[in-house]
């Protein structure tokens, strides 16, 4: 399986996703938008899944 990016970069990107998620939830709360834990986890799973899908999608298809 060929990745569109290196495993190392993917690892860092997944970590960044988690971090942004945690901080974004806080920032949203400050402007009166409160995400429940369930919703936060759902957004996180979706974002990371999308990231992984993008990574494993064979290079050259699309774009």
């Amino acid at each position: 399986m060929r990745l569109r990016t290196s495993p190392a970069k993917l690892l860092v990107l997944v970590a960044l996703c988690l971090v942004v998620l945690v901080e974004l939830r806080t920032a949203l709360a400050f402007v009166g938008v409160s995400l429940s834990i369930g919703a936060t986890v759902a957004v996180g799973v979706a974002a990371i899944a999308a990231l992984l899908l993008w990574a494993v999608r064979p290079a050259g298809s699309g774009e």
């Binding site: 939830r25 806080t26 949203l28 709360a29 400050f30 409160s34 995400l35 429940s36 834990i37």
Partner: peptide
């Protein structure tokens, strides 16, 4: 707590 609870 804004968004969530102390438990969280």
């Amino acid at each position: 707590v804004a968004a969530g609870s102390v438990g969280e």
